[in-house]
């Protein structure tokens, strides 16, 4: 198989996994958070038991898959991108933002959500702090996703936007 065909499969995988990841991120921020604020205590318990863990499962593994497909797609230019060299600075900024977002998912959101959901024992006060931390990390990722998507798209479709 030619290199360009392999790259296409990596790009396809990157887009598929990325849609699952960012789609769920927007679902959490625009739908689930307001829903959980409005729903009864009983509904919240049910959601924490059957809905949120499922969504978080797809969310965190899709985040990892997106990053791995992206890294594979960068291939030999991985270093150029992360060092923001020349025109690789455009995709490199997208890659940096995506990497920070991945670290947020696995390093902040998931460990804190495990306590909120009761998968890891925590007191009621700890759960409150963890919920706030996970919320802010999730909101931060929503902020970062906006420039991240511009730089991802611009790397192949909008190079003329940048002064070259």
């Amino acid at each position: 198989m030619e290199g360009s065909t392999i790259a296409l499969f990596f790009r396809w995988g990157h887009l598929l996994a990325g849609i699952v990841w960012i789609g769920l991120l927007y679902y959490f921020n625009f739908v689930q958070v307001p829903f959980l604020k409005a729903v009864s205590a009983e509904g919240k318990t049910e959601a924490f038991k059957h809905l949120v863990p499922r969504a978080l499962n797809w969310f965190r593994w899709a985040a990892l898959a997106t990053w791995l497909f992206g890294a594979a797609l960068l291939g030999a230019h991985f270093g150029d991108a992360f060092m923001l060299k020349g025109q690789y600075a455009i995709i490199g900024m997208g890659a940096w933002l995506g990497t920070i977002m991945l670290l947020n998912v696995w390093g902040i959101i998931w460990p804190n959500q495990k306590r909120v959901l009761g998968l890891v024992p925590a007191s009621a006060d700890e759960k409150k702090i963890c919920a706030r931390r996970a919320f802010l990390a999730s909101r931060t990722n929503t902020v970062l996703s906006i420039p991240m998507l511009l730089f991802m798209a611009a790397s192949t479709h909008g190079i003329a936007l940048f002064n070259q």
Binding site: N29, F30, P34, L84, G86, Q87, A89, I90, M93, L97, L136, R139, T140, T142, V143, L144, S145, I146, P147, L150, F151, L161, F162, N163, Q164
Partner: peptide, 30 residues
């Protein structure tokens, strides 16, 4: 002062402001 991340629109606007800042940074770099 309220945290803009507490509101959906505050979050979205922050994203666009950050986009403008990072665009200027990368534009100066390439």
């Amino acid at each position: 002062m309220t945290n803009p991340l507490d509101s959906i629109w505050g979050t979205i606007i922050s994203g666009f402001v950050l986009t403008a800042v990072l665009y200027a940074f990368i534009d100066a770099l390439v």
